[in-house]
Amino acid sequence: MTDSMAADQGVQASSKAGPALADERAEQSSAGAVLTSPRLPLLLAQYAVFPVALIAGWQACAQIGLVRRSVLPAPTDVALVWFDLITGATDAAARYSGTWLDHAAASIWRVFAGFGWGVALGIFAGLLIGLSRIMERVLDPTIQVLRNIPVTAWVPLSLVFFGIGNAPAVFLIGLGAFFPAAVNTTHGVRQINVTLTKAARMMGADERELLFRVILPGALPSVMTGVRLSMGIAWVLVVVAEILAVRSGLGYLLNDAYLFYRNDVVIAAMLSIGILGFISDRIVVLVRDYLLEWNRLETFSGQN
């Protein structure tokens, strides 16, 4: 890890050296970034245009009475209820007033607990399968069959085994997070350039050094793709689990408000899940970009 940290600093330092020393590729990319990156106001406008239009359209639909407001509350209604959900200041959310933090914390805890064990076990299984043809024969067929069972189909059994509470939720989320991590780790190990493993062996690397210095860093781009998918699935499954198996969390809030016909609370809960899921994804992306700074040099990273 210290290696890659030192390397990160190295590349940052080198990018300051400027185009005089850079080879053509580096020159092109740094010059391109300067020329094509829009100025800040334009940048913000590009980010804002679609969500603002969406909310404005939604508000208009509610204002002109296209849909009854109790069925589709206006964004302003949702905002007021959301504010009360979080602060408990106005009682706009009535029986749900001020409960947001508890529900959000419960969901976040379940997501990260399930994600944690699912991803850890997934990466471990993926490494075993990727490294050993024997382990592939032992483990892979089972994993491939189980992977095709939707995780929601595990709900009845997990309720029977774990009862109502955190356990079935964390189990389901972990199960969902396991498969993308395992499959992508296997792929990551398998796609490592054989010249690199040959070179390491030629220089005298033993099995452990080969694993930690070549296989793991080489598989990391693919592993992180799996981890990101796992995080996405974790937020899907936390809602499923909380609707069916627990009496707290944003999924529970959403379902309970639905039963009490509070669509404003339902939408506030939906958006909360969306935003927390988005933040979780950003965290994974930040970690990935930090660990894989080198990988962006070799891959297409978009135009303008």
Binding site: T195, M203, E298
Partner: peptide
């Protein structure tokens, strides 16, 4: 016995 490969064997994540 050091081997120099046709496809340069450099680790892309290392400087």
């Amino acid at each position: 016995r050091g081997v120099v490969f046709q496809q340069t064997a450099l680790f892309p994540w290392l400087s």
